[in-house]
Design a protein around this nucleic acid. Structure first.
Length: 180
DNA sequence: AATCTGATCGTG
DNA sequence: ACGATCAGATTA
């Protein structure tokens, strides 16, 4: 019996044109291609949170602003913002254009990088060199047919509104390494 | 114009 | 438990 050979495929924009609460858990174990100073790197997505427009904890709750413009833009693009004046958070925009939805990437696995360096939303952007210059850029998410974990939604981290909404999904640990 | 509040992280 | 550090939101 030959080993399974699945051609990794880039997720189309239609994948993201759904509610963030539907898209978020499906992003677990997908690969996100990021341009770094060292070149293009595929990182494994291990933790996400969903933010929708009806969510008091969401930046989109009070309508679009200059900062959140990309969150209301076409799905499948990045929404990158500065939190607490010093850390960047990376999101993937979901829903239809005009919706204010996104999935926050909270933890990833990077080939050759200790996992404690990318186990938080601010830490992973620092490690990868992602900042506001990536805001609005096309997100490149690759499905390499890694096993899809059964993830249960849990409450989100670091918010003070809608604290008990189950909109955070974690990949089981241990997890497969990127590219393998 | 002044103040408050963060989708965080490192240090103590 | 707290400070860093800045932008959006709120209050006046």
């Amino acid at each position: 019996m030959t080993s399974r050979a699945v051609r990794p495929c880039r997720l189309p924009p239609s994948f993201f044109a759904r509610d963030a609460t539907d898209v978020a858990p499906q992003l677990l174990h997908k690969l996100l291609r990021v341009d770094t100073a060292a070149g293009s790197v595929d990182v494994r997505i291990l933790e996400v949170e969903a933010y929708t427009q009806d969510d008091p904890a969401s930046h989109s709750f009070r309508g679009p602003t200059a900062r959140t413009a990309s969150m209301f833009g076409p799905p499948g693009r990045l929404y990158v913002y500065l939190v607490y004046g010093m850390h960047h958070c990376m999101n993937i925009v979901t829903g239809r254009e005009g919706d204010g939805q996104a999935v926050l990437v909270r933890r990833v696995l990077v080939p050759g990088v200790a996992r404690h360096r990318t186990d938080g939303p601010g830490k992973l952007t620092r490690e990868l060199g992602v900042d506001r210059s990536s805001d609005g850029a096309q997100a490149r998410v690759i499905d390499d047919a890694a096993p899809v974990p059964v993830a249960m939604a849990t409450p989100r981290i670091g918010i003070t509104k809608a604290v008990d909404w189950p909109r955070r999904w974690l990949a089981p640990w241990p997890s497969v390494t990127p590219g393998g």
